[in-house]
Design a protein around this nucleic acid. Structure first.
Lengths: 353, 353
DNA sequence: TTGTACGCGTTATCAA
DNA sequence: TTGATAACGCGTACAA
């Protein structure tokens, strides 16, 4: 075998030097038509007689030619590339979103250029890349400051936020607001006798975390319960485990712990079981947010509020498509409710209390 | 706010119509130099006097200009895009590889175009996209038939296989062969009194699964044990759970079950604990392959063999870089050993047997 | 070091 | 429907 130049007979017949790429001109020569005819045959709705089209398609297949997307993008001002910004960290929520988005985008003939953003410092170089590659649009499910978002405004690049946005800046947003389900969840806990709650939050600056917390506080108050303490976490499994230690030091212990995402809930549960020898839910009720696949595994069977990721990704792509097709559109915010997942991590308040 | 054209004063001063993109010509005009001077200032090693460079960079910054990667790719025949083909299914091994690869590639100034491939039928359209976008190279961690791989040969697109390859076709390959650790693992089980093994395999056509199985069979034989039965799985959590049911029907039950990946091991363990009320490892020893993050969570603490994903991704990118810089290189296969992870899912063979 | 001129491979325009 | 020709925005010989 080895790495030789392709030995295509047709190439030789057309005198295409090895190493040079096959172009639409070559296809045109082989088909006996003009180059522009070839181009039209590959354009949806391009006018060409059945006979021409047949010849061209045959020739293209023969030579293994496909239109060069770079050249096409240069002239059409459309790269058909969408940048997806996502956190590369260990929260298993992100891969689920990423794969769902990729799937939906490919149905729209859009390609995903992937960027992982783990801190706000990562954003600037990523924005440079995005602008260099002339991406048609950006979906951001990661950190971003206002001034970053404004750079897209300047280049008229549609930007769709996924589960985050700026209160004081309009933009396209896909959101899950699980407030109704949060009330439902807290009510369920309250009905089971819980009144002393604790909360494990995400980063203080994180909007998702803040929204969830606000919902939990309101729901607990509505039920007449008390949030004894709020322990800070950072959405990681480890921070959930660490938070439990702080909660266990409270003189008056909580009987139900609401975590701002599933990863922390899982960490907290594992710590409760292995280190503190607490049974969940017999001794302690724990809940999460997100509804990631891992939290559904039988070892956790977490009671949580699922984000409808599939629908949200559908929406993100639909909004994006709309922005691409009608650039004068106004902004839109689509808010989805969550879905309460009935797991096995909450139960009646223990007698001992 | 709203979606107005950018109101850049400099744009107006240069008479750049709204809607037209800023080009290197605009930068050149503003800097008072030629377009090629601008180009050179953005080329590493391009010759330009300090003064020129200063003016150009200032002008570029003023206009928010960045070189157009599409146009650059067209002329240089280098898109700086790498296609990553990965399975979009629920095996949590893939996101880990994907994020690690993305990280490494970005250090090489290469962008990731992501393609999810869940069955061999998905491959053809993906290959079309890949060839259209003139990607510089392809990393494949998903299904692919030989004829697919050959298409890359034809276009001289470097292809690096990640944990799979064709026996009868040379190519660049990054591989984890955990054979030594498999022996180690089986020996450890054997030392703890196990002699009746069961295996839960992956898809019969899957190379990774076949290799792992071969290793397990050899190791068990070497230790004088017996593989009582092999249950087929498909690398998913659910198939691991299902496999246990088949294994429990054996008249002579296995005491140690080796699963071909972590996801199945986790499914099997959960099923054992919740449905069959078996304790792991007291009643049953279970092991996996991969060493994914989820398997390390305290609820599982799986005994498994980790793939050195970080090193493997480093290697994949290094091999790819080599292919890009020296196209006449020959193929290379880099094989990494695994790392035995001492979890808590294996133990002495139970007395009752 | 600098500028001129050309070409990368396509789509868009327009006259035929 | 078809073909000639002009962009798209850049990198790069080559001459100055």
């Amino acid at each position: 075998m080895g790495k030789n130049q392709p030995q295509n007979k047709k190439r030789e017949a057309l005198n295409i030097p090895a190493g040079r790429r096959v172009t639409s001109y070559d296809v045109a020569r082989l088909a006996g038509v003009s180059q522009s005819a070839v181009s039209r045959c590959f354009k949806p709705g391009g006018s060409a007689s059945a006979k021409t089209r047949e010849k061209v398609l045959a020739a293209a297949k023969e030579l293994g030619w496909q239109p060069n997307a770079l050249a096409r993008g240069l002239i059409t001002q459309r790269s058909n590339i969408v940048a997806v910004l996502i956190s590369g960290n260990v929260n298993l929520y992100y891969p689920e979103v990423l794969f769902a988005l990729t799937h939906r985008l490919s149905e729209e003939k859009l390609r995903v250029m992937l960027f992982t953003v783990d801190s706000e410092d990562d954003v600037d170089p990523v924005l440079d890349q995005i602008s260099q590659f002339q991406v048609d649009a950006v979906i951001s499910a990661s950190h971003m400051r206002r001034e970053h978002a404004e750079r897209f405004e300047e280049t008229n690049t549609p930007l769709v936020f996924f589960n985050r946005y700026f209160e004081d800046r309009s933009s396209d947003v896909i959101l899950c607001d699980p407030e109704p389900q949060t009330r439902q969840l807290v009510k369920r806990l309250s009905d089971q006798g819980h009144s002393r709650f604790a909360v494990v939050s995400g980063p203080a600056t994180n909007m998702v975390s803040r929204t969830r917390l606000r919902g939990v506080r309101a729901a607990v108050e509505a039920e007449g319960g008390t949030i004894i303490t709020e322990a800070p976490g950072d959405f990681t499994y480890e921070s959930g485990a660490a938070a439990l230690h702080r909660l266990m030091e409270c003189t008056e212990r909580p009987t139900a712990i609401v975590c701002a995402n599933d990863m922390m809930a899982m960490g907290l549960i594992d710590e409760a079981r292995t280190v503190f020898r607490l049974r969940v839910p017999e001794d302690l009720s724990v809940t999460g947010f997100d509804g990631i696949a891992t939290a559904r595994l039988a070892s956790y069977d977490l009671t949580t509020i699922r984000q409808p990721i599939g629908r949200m990704c559908d929406a993100a792509v639909a909004v994006l498509r709309e922005q691409l097709d009608r650039p004068e559109r106004t902004y839109e915010k689509r808010v989805f409710e969550g879905l309460l997942i009935d797991g096995a991590t909450i139960g009646p308040v223990p007698d001992v209390y």
